[in-house]
């Protein structure tokens, strides 16, 4: 590829047909309140970790649902387990349990 001085750019498109939905199914089964997330962002705005590191709880919900488990695994490492995301959620999503389940799934 150095031959040309450029290479193929990987596609950033979410390919919903080829996502990894194992985590999504696991969370959906054990914490159905996660279905209620509407990406209002209150959780991410109040997040202790999110102010200093890449951690957005509402995005984590999206990544799970889009089958993008790798993104979830990277971000969740920055969680401080303070529970504020659950306190502010207007839809009553049990975020603490969602986080616990993610950690269980990834055996972190």
């Amino acid at each position: 590829m150095s031959k040309f001085g450029f290479k193929l750019t990987p596609s950033g498109t979410i390919n919903y047909d080829q996502g990894d939905f194992r985590l999504a199914e696991f969370i959906d089964q054990h914490e159905p309140s996660s279905r209620l997330c509407i990406s209002c962002g209150a959780c991410s705005a109040t997040c202790t970790g999110g102010a200093f590191a890449k951690l957005e709880m509402h995005k984590i919900h999206l990544f799970i649902k889009r089958g993008m488990s790798d993104n979830v695994k990277t971000q969740i490492q920055n969680c401080m387990y303070c529970g504020k995301c659950q306190l502010v959620c207007p839809r009553g999503v049990n975020n603490r349990n969602v986080i616990r389940l993610i950690l269980t799934h990834f055996k972190i």
């Binding site: 040309f4 001085g5 450029f6 290479k7 193929l8 750019t9 990987p10 596609s11």
Partner: peptide, 14 residues
């Protein structure tokens, strides 16, 4: 711009 051609070729590839 040569360095940007990867972006161009990726569309043809798609």
């Amino acid at each position: 711009v040569q360095a940007n051609r990867g972006y161009s070729v990726s569309n043809t590839y798609k």
